[in-house]
Design a protein around this nucleic acid. Structure first.
Lengths: 247, 247
DNA sequence: CGAGGTCTTGACCTCCCTCAAGCCTTGTGG
DNA sequence: CCACAAGGCTTGAGGGAGGTCAAGACCTCG
């Protein structure tokens, strides 16, 4: 397409961990330059994913981990009587599929909430590579234990906090993660519905909506549909009773 | 002590993973005989722990994993405003400390709810051993991902289920774990208080107590203080709406 | 045997859920 | 570009599950 010489777009498209802007957040963290090149060879870069599509489904057999490059994902589990529980929201630089690493089957479903791209990391190759690069194994440990700690923070939230505390924790957490990726910490667009937020926080969508309205009435945030502006982050953090949820 | 030749108690006391009755549940799962011997050499066996004592505290630097041999433990995290959240109860054959594997610091506190014994697994030695035994690394992955899946099951429980469903899930889960260890699935002694159960399940102790009473009135269980008898496990399972919590 | 922790039960209240109605946003097709 | 449909959001009213407070019973262990 167009008259641009092919070699240029090819170079552009052949992205790699070495040049990826997410390398400080993603799997490559702490790897030496030559190790990064090895990792690169194993990874299938820039797989596009359409909004609404599943990266994997709960119960599917596990082959690959996925690193989010761009876009926004939710992970969910389903109780057999049909209730959906959102277990997490995931953005650029985060790794999906760690819960399947042991069992051979995915335990949750990962759905794209907007169009995006992921890198696919075939696990068998990653596994053999980690035998040459011990720090890779240790990094997996780190990622998995971080996930455990994150989930346990959610247990604290679901077990102890009231609706507004939960929503405040959610907003502050999102804000910090956007900021770590170079986006604004104060204004962002929610990719998920009120119902998905509610599922994640153990609340009904009406309760989420009411809490948003109340925060707005109190001058803490500005809500315009899915567009959120944090007007007083300090006060929001004050609402948490200093419970902090990691990641 | 006494007149018994010393060699006999010594043999008895020098326990090992090879002879341990928990080897089908604990870390050794799936290791070859010679690998088991290597693992044995790394482990400090039979460390006694008194009731009420902490195996480790949240924030302490991480050196060892602990495998429960006998006894019963709870793990907790503390929000800074003092609220305690119980994140799990742990019995023979279960591994404690996995959440610290990456971060270098323990994320939770582990407290003995009765006198018991643990095996201490110094992590640096385990780490270097796992470079000789690849299946050991994979087994760590498995244990950690199982922990993630278990926590996510708890998210479902805390996010979606009502008080009696939660308690039923708790009792059924305990029953299955006791049974897997060769104890009765129908009658057992709760080592934790109503308050600790409540913290784990996101309920107040009065609510736990009332739910116990109601189950008893309905003929599902018999309650005598901490002694519980399950009279109708099928009905209890029916209460769950087929949400099942792993481990 | 007494003290302190633990458990049960009752009465009341509150926070969140449920149900319902209407509005807004987004996307699609004419 | 507009019309319309469908999903998503807000807001209100009412009800109920579980929290709070309190009193007394029951272990358990020094």
């Amino acid at each position: 397409m167009s008259g641009i010489p092919e070699v240029i777009p090819l170079v552009e498209l052949r992205s790699s961990c070495v040049t990826c802007s997410l390398r400080e957040l993603c799997l490559p963290i702490g790897l030496a330059a030559d190790e990064l090149v090895q990792l690169d060879e194993v990874i299938r870069q820039r797989v596009p994913v359409k909004r609404g599509k599943a990266l994997f489904l709960a119960g599917q057999s596990f082959h690959s981990l996925f690193a989010v490059r761009t876009g926004f994902f939710k992970t969910t589990i389903l109780s057999e009587d049909g209730r959906e529980q959102v277990t997490g929201f995931h953005m650029a630089g985060e790794l999906l599929g760690l819960d399947a690493l042991g069992g051979g089957k995915h335990a949750c479903t990962a759905i794209a909430l907007e169009d995006g791209e992921v890198c696919e990391l075939p696990f068998t190759q990653l596994d053999s590579l980690s035998r040459q690069i011990p720090s890779l194994t240790r990094h997996f440990y780190k990622l998995m234990s971080r996930e455990i700690v994150r989930d346990q923070g959610m247990l604290l939230l679901l077990g102890n906090m009231r609706a507004e505390e939960r929503l405040a924790a959610f907003l502050v957490n999102l804000s910090q993660r956007f900021e770590a990726r170079g986006f604004s910490a104060k204004g962002f667009h929610l990719r998920m519905t009120r119902e998905e937020i509610g599922s994640y926080l153990g609340l009904k969508l009406e309760t989420v909506s009411r809490a948003f309205s109340r925060f707005q009435a109190d001058g803490l945030i500005k809500v315009h549909g899915k567009q959120i502006t944090l007007l007083n982050i300090t006060a929001l953090k004050g609402l948490l009773g200093t419970c902090h949820v990691a990641q």
